[in-house]
């Protein structure tokens, strides 16, 4: 039993939220398997932060400090984790199904001659095996799968797994895995103006669809989102119409989001959209068409004119 590993995700020297979600989820799996969680931290200047992962249930941290690992790269991360895993043979390696995790999963699995189950929404331990639940076919069906090889590579849908503070502490062990050649070179990062909240990490999302009628009308959603401390998303129709950028698109071909609160304004609710937001914890739909499919997925629906209801809602929250 070499335990359950978590690959920490960091950006600009800080762990991303999914790291704590993954450590918490891994802790439950490790408890079920009767083993411990080891977090793998790859980066630079993260030694102090690494020890903090103990608070969420990591017993140990393997920390590789290298300037070459400061910025994520597919090859650097896959080589480093594969090198460490070959030496220790963990039962499972868990990380986020974030952009980074989606990039890493396939390469890492092939390097370790195993399989990956990605974008999982539930994990359970049954008879000493990990049973992994993941939505398929745009969320119309859920599959429960198992990986019949080791290590089992599992990525988690962001914002789904609870962060649980266990109050432990982790022993940090410095490691120097082989990295090999890193052939994809980051040239620059063009930052979004104003530091937008990442849709996949947002706790509150206010989204607009075709019913918004034009790009300028999204200002009323911006106002509501800003009042709620959330961010603005869009349906595919709104993106195709050129009202919002593709990076704002919520849906199967855009971003899969799981906020605490999703407010869908003027969105009809095509399957492709529902696949991207259906697992949100509370869904409010505002649409004047009583037959819009979005209402069937919502917890609370308002059949009304969003141009009246949304500003009224913003005003009410200001109070």
């Amino acid at each position: 039993m070499a335990g359950v590993w978590v690959i920490a995700e960091q950006r600009d020297g800080a762990f991303r939220k999914i790291t704590f979600e993954a450590v918490s989820a891994a802790k439950k799996v490790a408890d079920g398997l009767g083993t411990e969680v080891t977090a793998v931290v790859l980066g630079s200047g993260l030694e102090a932060a690494s020890a903090d992962l103990g608070k969420y249930g990591a017993a140990k941290v393997l920390y590789a400090d290298s300037p070459e690992l400061a910025v994520y790269s597919t090859e650097g991360y896959a080589a480093a984790v594969a090198d460490l895993a070959k030496a220790s043979a963990p039962d499972a390696i868990i990380f986020g199904a974030s952009m980074q995790g989606k990039d890493l999963a396939g390469r890492l699995a092939a390097k370790l001659d195993t399989s990956a189950a990605v974008d999982c929404t539930a994990l359970a331990v049954e008879g000493g095996k990990i049973a992994i639940t993941r939505p398929i076919y745009a969320g119309k069906v859920y599959a429960q799968v198992a990986i019949n090889a080791a290590p089992q590579i599992i990525t988690l849908r962001p914002n789904v797994f609870d962060i649980v503070e266990t109050g432990g502490s982790a022993a940090v062990e410095k490691v120097s895995p082989a990295l090999g050649a890193i052939r994809v070179k980051q040239v620059e990062v063009l930052a979004e103006e104003g530091g937008k909240i990442d849709l996949t990490e947002a706790m509150i999302i206010v989204s607009g669809g075709r019913g918004m009628k034009e790009a300028a009308n999204f200002s009323i959603l911006e106002a509501l989102a800003s009042q709620l401390g959330g961010t603005v998303g869009a349906s595919r129709s709104a993106v195709d119409a050129g009202w919002r950028h593709h990076t704002d698109q919520v849906g199967q071909t855009g971003k899969v989001v799981t906020p605490n609160l999703y407010i869908a304004c003027g969105i009809s609710g095509a399957i492709q959209h529902l696949a991207g937001m259906g697992s949100s914890k509370v869904i409010v739909s505002i649409n004047k068409d009583p037959d819009a499919p979005i209402h069937t997925k919502a917890d609370f629906c308002v059949v009304g004119d969003l141009f009246e209801v949304v500003p009224a809602l913003t005003d009410e929250i200001k109070k």
């Binding site: 189950a117 209801v309 009224a312 005003d315």
Partner: peptide, 30 residues
């Protein structure tokens, strides 16, 4: 190596609660 254990259709929730009223009433309720 990826084995299917089970497929299932996700259970739908208790169903939506419809809210009605004038915009300011709706906002207050919401």
């Amino acid at each position: 190596r990826l084995r299917r254990l089970d497929y299932f259709v996700p259970q739908s929730g208790p169903g939506a609660r419809m809210l009605a009223g004038k915009p300011d009433q709706l906002a207050a309720q919401l």
